[in-house]
Simulated assay, not measured.
Amino acid sequence: MKISFYVLSESKAQDFLGFICQLTQTALNKSAQSLLILVEDKALLSGLDTALWAQDATSFIPHQCLLDNQTDVDMAASKSVTPVLLGNHMPTDFNGIVLNTTSHPVNDFMAATSNAKPSRVLELIKPDTASTQAGRDKYKAYQQSGYELTHFKV
């Protein structure tokens, strides 16, 4: 699995929702895979839900919010209608791109009985102490798992 860390500048962090929308649109333009945005903060989830519907004046990013107990999603049907999923967990059969806004590595969201095999993970690191430390911890966890790691300063 390929893991890309995006270390956000102060200005990008101030427009966190805008950056997530921009990265989501870029990922959708470059890949035919579904995208899961992992969010643990309910306020961020609500804001992101609104922001994706109003990406800009002439477009929107179709998406679906997963319910807390919803582990099974028909990915084939979902992909044709809503290529983006938002939630605080990973569906059992998810195998697309994961944009992780949480403080935990994606491995923590893949249950032992899960068939989920993300193809790529996009990690967002804000320029604050807590996010930077969580990023370091995730980097170390992914490195120990032998994943291919890259990072970008944006």
Rank of each mutant, 00 (worst) to 15 (best):
K2Y: 07
Y147S: 06
V121M: 05
Y147G: 00
H63G: 09
F5V: 08
A76D: 13
Q143M: 01
W53V: 06
K126N: 11
T71W: 10
L124A: 07
M110P: 00
A76S: 11
D137A: 09
V121H: 01
S78E: 12
A54W: 07
P127Q: 03
H89N: 14
K2S: 11
D108H: 14
S80N: 11
L149Q: 01
I125W: 12
L52H: 05
D74G: 07
F109W: 04
A112K: 15
T58K: 14
V121N: 01
N29K: 10
E123C: 08
F5C: 03
M110F: 13
P118T: 11
D41P: 00
E148P: 00
S46C: 05
A130H: 04
A27C: 14
Q14T: 11
F94D: 12
T150N: 15
L86I: 10
V154L: 15
S103T: 14
P127H: 13
V39I: 13
M75A: 10
W53E: 07
Q64I: 02
I37H: 02
L99I: 15
T24S: 14
T102G: 03
D93F: 12
P83M: 10
S114I: 02
A32L: 11
V154Q: 12
L52D: 06
D49C: 08
L124G: 04
P127D: 09
F5Q: 01
R136W: 08
S80I: 07
V73E: 06
V73R: 08
K12D: 12
V84P: 07
Q55I: 13
D108Q: 09
F19M: 13
V106N: 03
T129W: 03
D68T: 02
V73Y: 07
S131G: 06
D137T: 08
G18T: 05
M75E: 14
R136T: 01
N95I: 04
V7F: 14
L35V: 15
A54D: 12
L85K: 08
V84I: 10
A54V: 13
K153C: 03
L38P: 00
T150M: 07
T92S: 11
M110D: 07
Q55F: 15
N115C: 05
D72I: 04
D68M: 01
P127L: 10
L67E: 14
T101Q: 07
D41F: 01
L36Y: 03
S103M: 06
K30M: 04
T150I: 06
I61A: 01
C21W: 05
N115L: 12
A76P: 06
F60T: 07
Q14E: 12
C21P: 03
T101Y: 07
S34V: 09
F5I: 09
G135C: 06
A57V: 12
P83H: 04
K79A: 09
T71C: 00
A112H: 04
K117N: 05
K12W: 08
L149G: 03
K117V: 05
A111S: 13
D74L: 11
L8C: 11
K42I: 01
D15V: 11
T26M: 09
F94Y: 13
D128R: 09
T82I: 00
A27L: 04
S78F: 03
H63C: 11
T24R: 02
V154D: 12
A141K: 04
T50E: 10
Q70Y: 02
I20T: 10
A130W: 05
I37Y: 00
P91F: 11
K138I: 06
M1H: 15
D49M: 00
D15Q: 15
P91S: 14
V106T: 13
A130P: 02
G18I: 06
F60S: 14
